[in-house]
Every structure is written in C-alpha cells, then in structure tokens.
C-alpha cells in the first residue's frame, strides 16, 4: 500500500485570480508583508501497490492525463508508506 500526495499548481506566469483575491484579503487583515499568493490543489491517492516504481509510473500518468492540465498547471508528488516513514520527492513537476 502506498499513498501518493500530489500537489497541482498553476505554472509560473499563469494568472491566478484566486491567489490575487486571497492576497487582497490578507493585506486587508493587516499582513502588509505578503507579496504573492498562489492557490493550488492537494490530492491524496491511495494505491494498492507496493512497487514504488510502478506506483510512480501510474501517478505520473494520472497527473498528465487528468489531475493536472499541462497547458496551465504543473504537478509534483511524494510517495509514502501508509505509516509515512519514508518520503520520496518526484524528480520533476
């Protein structure tokens, strides 16, 4: 069993209206030091797989085909044992 923790974010340079609005809110609250906010998505995908290489291959494919839109988004993920003992960052996003 493996747990993929996937982060999908807008590519740099792609306008993020949500992030802009959140930044406006933070500034209105008095956090004047905030200079940028980007909003992304976080997904947890449980896999009934023990082979990390195969799990990585499948998660890559899921990200490319559905979870991220490569036109405007990038992704990165970690694969963890359910206990969360080891963490492995994907090489690319």
């Amino acid at each position: 069993m493996l747990l993929a923790k996937i982060y999908v974010t807008l590519k740099p340079g792609v306008l993020d209206p949500q992030g802009e609005a959140v930044m406006g809110g933070l500034k209105a609250m008095g956090y004047e030091g905030v200079t940028a906010v980007r909003v992304g998505k976080y997904l947890e995908v449980q896999l009934d797989l023990d082979d990390r290489q195969e799990a990585g291959r499948q998660v890559e494919e899921m990200c490319r085909r559905l979870l991220a839109n490569p036109v405007i988004e990038q992704y990165r993920y970690t694969l963890e044992e359910p206990a969360g003992l080891s963490t492995e960052e994907s090489p690319r996003g």
Binding site: V14, L15, D16, P17, Q18, A21, N69, V71, I72
Partner: peptide, 10 residues
C-alpha cells in the same frame, strides 16, 4: 488548443 482559467474578476 488552450485552457480555461477562473474569470479574472472572480
């Protein structure tokens, strides 16, 4: 080709 983003006005 292309993609949709949230409206800039939100």
């Amino acid at each position: 080709p292309g993609a949709m983003r949230r409206n800039d006005c939100l």
